[in-house]
Design a binder for these strands. Structure first.
Lengths: 342, 342
DNA sequence: CAGACAAATGGTAGCGCTACCATCCCTATG
DNA sequence: CATAGGGATGGTAGCGCTACCATTTGTCTG
């Protein structure tokens, strides 16, 4: 007769099986796995042997239930295909790959309501930390973050009023820097082209506007935007619209690099010389900016580092020593290339 | 005196709180939430009111522990930034957004060992389904998939021996079709350029080779590959290498669209006329292929659909009616554009 | 050498939920 | 009108793990 195995448990070894095999109490196995320092060398070895032999893997659900804390990082991003967030997420994954923490990604589709819903779902798991993109949470989302009972890192942007911690940079400064560069290069009728005008895009636009106004060159007809998601083909279309509206255009600051690439291709098609007739500046500095012909000036942002840094701050907070500096500005760099060299 | 609240539970309402407020048993609340049809209209309304009032959200950990089944889809992809997988993942997210299922993504970094490790971790959660990229699992990974006790969908490729279900297409046929198109357009010295030669890239190369051999034009010196991850700048470099090795090159089939774009830019720089002197074909048909100047012929693949379809099959299997057809070939389409029109 | 104290180990009692098995009540049947 | 059968509801007993509080042992102090 086999011993009466649990009906439900699917036959996987449990901590009790390991304890029996190692001849110790279950709690000691638990400790050996979580706080090896508190178990004697001898027992630790015996337990490890039993774990290996049985192929025991702790059940994270049971662990979470018993300790009222799941080893999960909740991550909220507005898009999964946008290269910008993909890089941040990659940084997060790489930073957590050797830790016991799992990652749960939520896609808000740029919707505040969806963000609230996902925070509700995430909250029910009692995550170890939350990393959310952006600083413009709805009041409801903000309340959920404040009551999450875990470290929270807002990423992509910096701002004055963090829920807990922040890692990012100033999109407004980025937009201004890009525009000032075009001005310094001698361009005058500089357009702004932007798709998916999320809050960060809006602030880049504000930076553009500030620079243009300071130069006394601002004209609202220079701005061409759409709420449609960004793409290279959209960049082409928007640039055509912009040119139709303002044929005198001699430069464009693009909301992002996809748009900039689309603009460049349209210039080729229309036989507009870049940088002589049109100057182009992108945003984010994707790899292809340095390869294109002509290569495209862009504002380099540190997306992967935003991911790694946010994890580092959250881990520190979990360990009980939250970072001194709760707001980390990783800055950006203007990378000058052929598209604005005239 | 307040009633002695649990020390550990952080104060969130539990199913017992809802039951008390609604004046029913806890199990009835549980049923009302999971199988509304089995609870009378009246009670259902009362319970819903109590849930809303208390802001009750079920604890997924407790649920998973009690039912020995977590409402989680495990997803294993080799890269998070590669647009191809990002699209698949987006399809998966969109298909599951209205379901109770959460998604857990693992990044294998193209490593079989890492894949095994992640399957081990995922398995400990008893996921509702597993979706894994590729069909070349290590023997260990394959065993873990077979013993996962849940539906498994292998995606991106089709092959003869599914663990359970498959959704994808034939990369070999895709490579052959692309190459045959170049041959039909009159190109003869057709090179293959590929980065990150994962199993799918290898099969595209095999398709290229088959077509070239059938035409009596195969020459191993036409092949330029590297294990380095793909990028636009790498495409440019590899093309330069290829030209240096074989100056007679008159066409290239690129492993993917990033490479193809790099090749196009290098042609611009070197003043090589596309398509007259050099024909270019990409793979995947990203949006930018249609916009570039000249536009680039590519093999369109149905990445988003791979994601949605794999979820559909898994959900059907979970519901007890696994699809008749366990292997779904979504095919591909050659999209002819300017880069091969001479 | 008693007493204090720390380190190592274990027992017990849940964490919040659902599987399983009652129980109850109502309707249909002969 | 007794009985069977089905639908609605509830009680009990865990799921696998860890927090909390012993208990045991060894070591150091005065």
């Amino acid at each position: 007769m086999t011993k009466p195995r649990s009906r439900r448990g699917g036959g996987r070894p449990t901590i009790a099986d390991v304890a029996r095999k190692a001849g110790v109490g279950a709690i000691t196995v638990s400790r050996a796995l979580r706080e090896p320092g508190r178990v004697s060398e001898d027992l630790r070895r015996q337990i490890q042997a039993a774990v290996d032999e049985l192929g025991y893997v702790p059940d994270p659900n049971a662990r979470a239930l018993a300790s009222a804390r799941a080893e999960v990082f909740g991550v909220l991003v507005p898009s999964l295909t946008n290269n910008v967030f993909a890089e941040v997420v990659r940084g997060i994954y790489d930073s957590l790959s050797d830790s016991p923490f799992r990652i749960q990604i939520g896609n808000t589709h740029y919707s505040g309501l969806e963000e609230e819903r996902l925070l509700q779902v995430f909250g029910s798991q009692r995550p170890a930390a939350l990393i959310v993109a952006g600083i413009d949470q709805t009041p409801g989302a903000r309340r959920l973050l404040e009551n999450a009972g875990c470290p929270v890192v807002q990423v992509m942007e910096t701002g004055p009023d963090p829920v807990d911690m922040m890692v990012g940079f100033s999109h407004l400064d980025g937009g201004r820097t890009a525009t000032e560069h075009l001005l310094q290069a001698g361009y005058r009728k500089i357009g702004f082209i932007g798709a998916r005008m999320d809050p960060r895009s809006q602030r880049r636009l504000a930076g553009y506007r500030a620079a243009m106004e300071a130069a006394g060159l601002f004209d609202p007809r220079l701005i061409t935007t759409t709420p449609v998601p960004s793409s290279v083909s959209l960049g082409r279309e928007l640039f055509r619209d912009a040119l139709a509206k303002m044929p005198v255009l001699d430069g464009v600051f693009c909301n992002n690099d996809d748009i900039a690439l689309g603009v460049l291709f349209e210039c080729h098609r229309a036989s507009l010389d870049v940088p002589k007739q049109i100057g182009i500046v992108g945003f984010n500095d994707l790899d292809m900016m340095q390869v294109s012909f002509p290569s495209i000036t862009s504002v380099r942002t540190h997306r992967y580092e935003i991911g790694t840094r946010s994890v580092g701050m959250a881990l520190a907070a979990i360990a009980g020593n939250p970072p001194e500096q709760r707001i980390v500005d990783l800055g950006f760099e203007l990378v000058r290339r052929e598209s604005t060299a005239r």
